[in-house]
Design a binder for these strands. Structure first.
Length: 917
RNA sequence: GGGCGAAUAGCUCAGUUGGUUAGAGCACCUGUCUUACACACAGGAAGUCGGGGGUUCGAGUCCCUCUUCGCCCACCA
């Protein structure tokens, strides 16, 4: 496409897809282990692990947010010269994926049990093969520069090997064990859940007060309070606090369990809260974790009265007497209703009061979780947690924003063992084998063909699979090749750098990765955890499919382009702060990003029209004397923008193994970086420099070549600065830049460094010109002078200053739209005038009609404001405490200000005196 | 029950250890097709920084308290 054919607006549709394909085929995103200094190369590795989305996931705005942040960091470091690896992949997502396939076969009227285990797993594998991993394709649409050749999958052979190795090692180290206890059970998914997977939801329930009559004297009764009356079928005792005087005489006596009719004892245990309800609690050890602990302490039986599917029945026939026929075979909630009815008609229901409490729900299907007594595999966490806690405490790992460190520490200090077995079919099967012939059992790295002990073949493998998170907690090591030896990627890229994720999975995932990384390698898996905010709607509700308040990132990409989406996300996202969008008004949310892209595009258009595509001279080769004030100014602004962006993004890694206290909170301010870049590009390069050089670009000669070179340099710097956040448009413009070498990519070009070629004095001269132009514009607006009306103007300045104005006369006249004269004599026919900051005066000549009153009012108003300031300053500067306590630089600043204001006030006073009489 | 975060212009948000006249984008008002951009340009209006109290020479910033919203944790029978 030639320059002339460039449309006035950037068209992302016509650009992005093809450009992404070009990047990919050029291998721009590929990372080489050999180039890492850890493997003998000459580049620092910079590694980011993509939090693996569920293999069945469809891109939503949360993914967009998460991956945009990662891509900004990775692209930044890639340009900064690091060997940047962004490791992508997906998670097999045990429960989630199994649920999807179960729903699918339910349409055929089948359950997984109809199919059987192996065909069901085969069906799920097929489903994943055909439809899985779409999200990785969608991420390309956002511009994600991951190294796709390395795409990992938690259920792949190599990662499965890591999972199995881990389990066996933990088994050998005595850290994995089988426990018989009450766990969280989802009666719909038919599996156990970890503590983290059973989410609390606030619920308005009821607290039922039920009278349990004394066996010896039915006229007396002990009242217990419960939110789940159906569990009374499994009651084995009623507990009171040992020091509770109300019940002191009753301990040891028997109660008759209503509805069931059997006798149960009154026991004492100090876990009972005397303040809650009646201070007497029924104990159902098989259906409540606390009751289970109490039951174990007290040696009570543990009858199971609700089965795996949430149906009330005697799981052990020995407990049949506990289940009245009317309730047997009914759902737990139906039984709750029925029991309450019966209690009421029996007169055993003392009262029912509303009770707000939190009820655990399955995080995958939202079913109310049933505490259930069963055999499960657990990982002993305390030994794993200690080093992981230490790593954060001593600064080998930092969490941003910092406040999450406290949350992390608290959780780690109170960590409980992790239930890792799931009664599912989709996942890594637990590698424990049992010999039915001799009773041998063990965890094994390879499937045995015969029993190692008796050589028999009556072997079976444990039926359960592992928690999905048992594979994802290995992500930092398994994706890099562990436990293979040698593992070149592990050597080159582990420990990685920044982990970018949402705080929701701090416990699910982040803390566990730290534990596994440290346990299996002895080193931290990453040095920075960047916890970003959540995408919310204007009411502050989290965007979600079920609420229907989400934004489809791909729709935004289609309408406004990936760069606009990325820009909006990055610019709007303070460190760890939630981002709000209006899902009903995409235009309001994303037009600013699109507009900025268009602005950038048009700077490029202008440059190509004015400069062409031929190579320009590098600014470093220019004679410093040939640089005009505007040139010096924009070069200085670019250097300042680069420096500010570097501060905002911060140190990429700690200097040694530990973050210093000062470093610990530095950087990762992506919003500041974006704002810095925007300000430079729009408010400095486009609004001022580009306008300033128009005249020079129209006049052939040596100075035109200087302007061309500086403009090209500044724009090149702008593109580099913006590339991490707006990769597509910057790359497509960069490819068109004068002197571009085919086959080179902005994505791999060097991050800008300060050029330091400007001359400060001349940059200041441009500031004076800027002030003049702005003042002229203000006067024009204030006096309502139409733009078409020619205005003659005179700048009068001290002779020493005249030259600075003289050299920029054409530019000032053009930008302020006036016919400018530089002179030392005050013009006689003035209509409006004002003082410039440097003491010069600007006079607009409008045929000699001067509105003295208006001029006076303006000058006097400014004088009043200045004098107010000066009063404040004088008070401060004569205040001994201020002088004694304030930092010297602050005092100096105030003094300088006072001097400046005094001078200006003096000039204004003179002006007022001469003008207003 | 414990802990954390937020409250700044009509809206979305900046404001780094206390120190100029508290900023930006959008929206709004007034002009403008000015040799890239009307998805733009120029100019402008708009905030008792949630309420109250305190520390300080000085508070949007620190302390206490209250209100509203959000989040996390907990053996909320």
């Amino acid at each position: 496409m030639t320059v002339q054919e460039l449309p006035p607006q950037y068209d992302p549709q016509a650009t992005e897809r093809a450009l992404y394909a070009a990047w990919e085929s050029a291998g721009v995103f590929r990372a080489e282990a050999a180039r890492s200094v850890r493997a003998g190369g000459d580049r620092d590795p910079f590694t980011v692990l993509m939090p693996p989305p569920n293999v069945t996931a469809i891109l939503h705005v949360g993914h967009g947010l998460n991956n945009t942040v990662q891509d900004v960091l990775v692209r930044w470091r890639r340009m900064a010269g690091d060997e940047a690896l962004w490791m992508p992949g997906t998670d097999h997502a045990g429960i989630a994926t199994q649920n999807v396939v179960e729903k699918l076969i339910a349409k055929e009227g089948k359950t997984r049990f109809d199919l059987g285990r192996e065909p069901f797993v085969a069906r799920t594998e097929q489903f994943v093969r055909e439809t899985g991993g779409q999200i990785l394709q969608q991420l390309r649409g956002l511009g994600a520069s991951a190294d796709w050749d390395r795409t990992a999958y938690t259920l792949s052979p190599s990662l499965s090997r890591a999972v199995r190795e881990t389990f066996v090692r933990l088994w050998e180290d005595g850290l994995v064990y089988k426990g018989h206890r009450v766990i969280h059970w989802c009666p719909r998914c038919l599996t156990s859940l970890s503590d983290e997977e059973a989410e609390f939801h606030d619920t308005n329930g009821k607290l039922y007060h039920i009278r349990y009559p004394l066996a010896s004297d039915p006229s007396r009764a002990l009242t217990v309070a419960t939110t789940r009356p159906e569990t009374m079928l499994g009651d084995v005792a009623v507990a009171v606090h040992p020091d509770d005087e109300r019940y002191a005489g009753l301990i040891g006596q028997k109660l008759r369990l209503p509805v069931v009719g059997i006798e149960i004892p009154i026991v004492a245990d100090s876990f009972v809260d005397r303040e809650f309800g009646t201070g007497a609690v029924k104990l159902t050890p098989a259906h409540d974790a606390n009751d289970f602990d109490a039951g174990k302490r007290l040696g009570l039986p543990m009858p199971v009265v609700i089965d795996a599917e949430g149906i009330v029945r005697a799981v052990d026939p020995a407990d049949a007497a506990r289940i009245p026929a009317a309730f047997a075979g009914l759902d737990r909630f139906a039984v709750r209703k029925a029991i309450v009815q019966q209690l009421e008609s029996d007169g055993a229901l003392e009262k029912v009061e509303p009770h707000a409490h939190s009820v655990r729900h399955c995080y995958r299907c939202d079913t109310v979780v049933e505490p259930r007594l069963s055999d499960q595999w657990f990982v002993k966490m305390a030994p794993l947690a200690a080093p992981a806690l230490q790593a954060v405490r001593d600064g080998r790992i930092r969490l941003l924003p910092e406040r999450w460190e406290g949350v992390y520490v608290h959780w780690m200090e109170n960590i409980r063992d992790w239930n890792i077995s799931r009664q599912l079919w989709w996942g890594h099967r637990i590698p424990v084998f049992y010999c039915d012939a001799c009773g041998w059992s063990s965890a094994l790295r390879d499937n045995p063909t015969a029993c190692p002990k008796c050589n028999g073949t009556a072997l079976r493998q444990d039926e359960d699979v592992l928690d999905t998170w048992f594979s994802s907690w290995l992500w930092p090591i398994s994706t890099l090749g562990w436990p293979a030896d040698p593992a070149p990627d592990l050597k080159a890229f582990y420990g990685t750098d920044v982990l970018v994720t949402a705080p929701e999975i701090l416990f699910f995932w982040v803390s566990r990765m730290i534990m596994s990384g440290m346990y299996f390698t002895g080193r931290v898996p990453f040095h920075t955890v960047l916890l970003h905010g959540t995408a919310r709607d204007l009411q502050g509700r989290k965007m979600s499919k079920s609420l229907g308040n989400g934004i489809d990132p791909l729709e935004v990409v289609e309408k406004y382009g990936a760069d606009a989406l990325r820009w909006t996300i990055v610019a709007g996202m303070g460190l760890g702060v939630d981002v709000r969008f209006d899902p009903t008004d995409l235009d309001a949310s994303f037009a600013p990003g699109r507009n900025f892209a268009t602005k950038l595009w048009n700077i490029g258009r202008f440059l190509l029209q004015q400069v062409g595509t031929d190579t320009v001279r590098p600014v470093r080769d220019l004679d410093a004397a040939s640089l005009q004030p505007a040139d010096c100014w924009i070069l200085e602004r670019l250097d300042a923008a680069v420096a500010a962006a570097n501060v905002a993004l911060g140190p990429a890694r700690p200097t040694g193994d530990h973050w210093t206290t000062a470093q610990r909170t530095q950087g990762m301010r992506l919003d500041e970086y974006a704002e810095t870049a925007r300000r430079f590009v729009w408010n400095e390069l486009a609004d001022w420099y580009l306008e300033a050089v128009k005249g020079r670009l129209a006049t052939p000669g040596a100075d035109r070549e200087v302007a061309r070179a500086v403009l090209t340099h500044a724009f090149d710097g702008a593109l580099r600065l913006l590339h991490p956040v707006m990769p597509f448009i910057t790359e497509s413009l960069w490819q068109k830049l004068p002197g571009h070498v085919d086959g080179t990519w902005l994505a791999r070009a060097a991050w800008p460094t300060p050029a330091g070629v400007g001359v400060g004095e001349r940059a200041a001269a441009f500031e004076a010109a800027r002030a003049t132009i702005t003042l002229a514009r203000e006067l024009r607006a204030e006096y309502s002078i139409p733009p078409g009306t020619p205005v003659r103007a005179v700048v009068t300045a001290a002779p020493a200053r005249t030259a600075a104005y003289e050299g920029q006369r054409e530019m000032i006249a053009r930008m302020a739209r006036l016919e400018l004269t530089i002179g030392s004599d005050k013009p006689s026919e003035l209509a409006a005038h004002a003082l410039l900051p440097d003491g010069a005066e600007l006079h607009l000549l409008l045929g000699g009609t001067i509105d003295v009153a208006k001029e006076c009012a303006r000058f006097q108003q400014e004088l009043v404001q200045l004098e107010q300031q000066l009063t404040g300053l004088a008070a401060r500067l004569s205040n001994e405490k201020f002088l004694a306590k304030a930092k010297p630089e602050i005092v100096d600043g105030e003094r300088a200000k006072q001097a400046e204001y005094t001078a200006r006030a003096e000039a204004l006073r003179k002006k007022v005196a001469s003008l207003c009489g």
